[in-house]
Design a protein around this nucleic acid. Structure first.
Length: 218
DNA sequence: TGCCAGGCCGGGT
DNA sequence: ACCCGGCATGGC
């Protein structure tokens, strides 16, 4: 693996080690987590998922049978809970109609086709679609999130106006297209982001990327 | 107390 | 094709 991004990967891996993402025991749980974590701290998502587990609602079939307002109550700690209940229902309806409720069948499709299909579902945008593809389905697509963007902007690898596709293309050109690597790399960027690359007051001391070319704090 | 977290949608330019 | 307000809870 070469290029600056390759160096980033190695520096982050040396510092933080394997991240063991995605936290979730089943593929369905990973899909649910991908939707619930939209603009939300993971700790809140965990509470919601615990509620779903206790209610026995952490399977496609069980969640389908839950009325939307009841589902919303269970996922309340994850925030935007009425929106997210609608989103989960939209995904379930799609999975049922298009794939007979089978994640295995859904993920058996070609990557590009499945990605476009997921983007049609209410509540699934680019990051969520790619998270589902990579972390639940093992498809080799790079997940771009707010931390990824912030870190690459600070190190001047992208311009502030770069699109999601711009960032994803950058990674998919420079980093070998393999799911385990994309999995680890994205998780490492989030780890670095949480610890060192906050929105205000960049705390670069101790960041594994500290020694790389860096833009001045605004 | 205010700010922020692993976004997305819909309506307006 | 972008830009923005709305959506909501919990931790620091």
């Amino acid at each position: 693996m070469k290029g600056t991004l390759g160096k980033f990967y190695h520096a982050l891996f040396r510092a933080f080690g394997p991240q063991h993402w995605w936290p979730g025991e089943t593929r369905f749980e990973v899909v649910v987590g991908a939707i619930l974590t939209q603009s939300t701290a993971w700790a809140n998502v965990e509470k919601a998922i615990q509620n779903l587990k206790q209610a026995g609602a952490l399977s496609a079939r069980a969640m389908e049978e839950l009325p939307e307002h009841r589902l919303a109550e269970l996922i309340r700690p994850s925030g935007y809970y009425r929106q997210k209940a609608r989103k989960l229902k939209a995904f379930l309806a799609h999975l049922r109609r298009r794939h007979g409720g089978s994640l295995a069948r859904m993920f058996g499709q070609q990557t590009g086709l499945l990605r476009r299909e997921l983007l049609e579902v209410y509540g699934i945008g680019e990051e969520t679609a790619d998270s589902i593809l990579l972390y639940a389905g093992g498809h080799p697509v790079f997940v771009v999130d707010a931390y990824t963007r912030r870190i690459l902007e600070r190190h001047e690898l992208i311009s502030p106006g770069a699109s999601y596709q711009d960032l994803q293309n950058l990674f998919q050109r420079e980093i070998p297209r393999r799911a385990p690597i994309y999995n680890e790399f994205h998780a490492l960027l989030v780890a670095a982001g949480k610890r060192h690359c906050l929105r205000r007051e960049p705390r670069c001391e101790g960041c594994p990327l500290e020694t790389f070319p860096h833009r001045r704090a605004p």
